[in-house]
Structure formats: C-alpha cells, structure tokens
Amino acid sequence: MAALVQTRGVSKSFGGLFAVKDVDLAIEDREIHCLIGPNGAGKSTLFKLIVGTYAPSAGSILFAGADVTKMPAFARVARGMSIKMQAPSVFRALSVRQNLHIALQYHVEAHRIPAEEERLLSLLGLEVDASRPAGELAHGQQQWLEIGMALALRPRLLLLDEPTAGLSPDETFRTGELIQRLNADGATVLVVEHDMAFVRQIATSVTVLHLGQVFARGTIEDIISNRGVEEIYLGSAHDA
C-alpha cells in the first residue's frame, strides 16, 4: 500500500540557501509520524511545504495518491489535510464557540453543528469558556482550541507544528493522549516537535532532519539508540 503522504526530492531555497534539500519522506496511513531535528534543521519549512503555505523550489508532493505540489493550502485541506500552525492563531475577537463553528461548517451540515460544538467543547474542556472571545483564553487553552478546530475538519491527515509549545508538562501529556485517541479513531498524524519525552510518548515512527536533509529514520527505539542523532543534537547545543 502506498504512503498517505510522499515527498519526492523536495527542496526549498531562500535566496540561494537551502532550508530543505532533496527530502524523500513517506508517511504511512494511520501512523503517528514525528519530525524532529535541532534548530534550523528545516522541520518547519518541510511542514509548510506539505501544508502548502510554501511552494517547493524543486520536487513533488503526493497526498492520498494525488500530486498536490501546485495546489494552494485550502485545496489540500479540501482533500483531507488539517493543520495547526506553530503560533496559536485562533480568531481572537470571536467567541470560542464561533471559532469551532467556522471550522465545523466546512464539513458538517448546519443542523448538526450545535451538537458537534458541544462534543468538541467538552473534549477540549472549554465548556465554561464557550462564549468568551478566544483571544482572552490562556495560552494552553488557545493551543487546545486550535487543535480542536483542526479536528473539526475530520481530517485524514492531521498536521501539528509544535503542539506542545508553551504547555505545562501536564497539558503536554494530555495533548499526547488526545493525539493517540485521534489516531486510534483513524487519523494519520504528522507532528513537528522538540520535546523528546513527548515524541517518545506518541510516535510510531520518526524522521530526523539535519541541515535540511533526512539524517535518520526509523522507530523511536532506533532513533534513541542512534549515536549520530545524539551528536547532532549535542553539536547544535555546542554551537548555540
């Protein structure tokens, strides 16, 4: 069976500098795939290439068997991707409920939206805050709301860029549980992450990027026992 997402020789350069160079990546259906690597490894750029907010300088991207390389982001969403970007970006002036409503109305028929809103509000633990403007929520709650909006699209592929940034250890753990539950329900998940404990909690497979290229790939155990991976992390720690 073909992978759900495949990048073939994908590169992205900014004014001659390659942020991502010749990356082949395959994300199998129903796995939780983590993309890790030291700062500046090109994780976020690769993420944006898959999402469609950047156009690749070379190479092609396949999603569910179709070539989506030239498709704008909204068309990729229509095909079953759903995205949570790094910085929380909820509709700040709108209420929490309206935020979910706007995400839900994309797929869900009008008469079923209220019930879905309630279901998501309780899943996210945001029932009491439903009518507050989303911009007034605490940082962690905004992150969760945004994950909730990504879920509302009922994606085949959920793309999360640093979903635990700024969360407490407890919130991080619960986010991990949430992701695993979604995965059990059938979603494939791609996560860009820094936090190795979190990666260990959720990942079924891992790709390590270094200097814009694939450095290693395998199961979480393979990666942890790989001395090279440790060195690039330490190396970058020394450089920094």
């Binding site: 909204f74 969403v77 970006s89 002036a93 706007i102």
Partner: peptide
C-alpha cells in the same frame, strides 16, 4: 480576523 488561519480551515 486571520486570513491564513481561514485558508488553513479550507476556505478559498
């Protein structure tokens, strides 16, 4: 409120 977010929810 946020054009990029709206696009990422699938709206043209």
């Amino acid at each position: 409120e946020d054009p990029l977010r709206a696009e990422l929810l699938g709206y043209d």
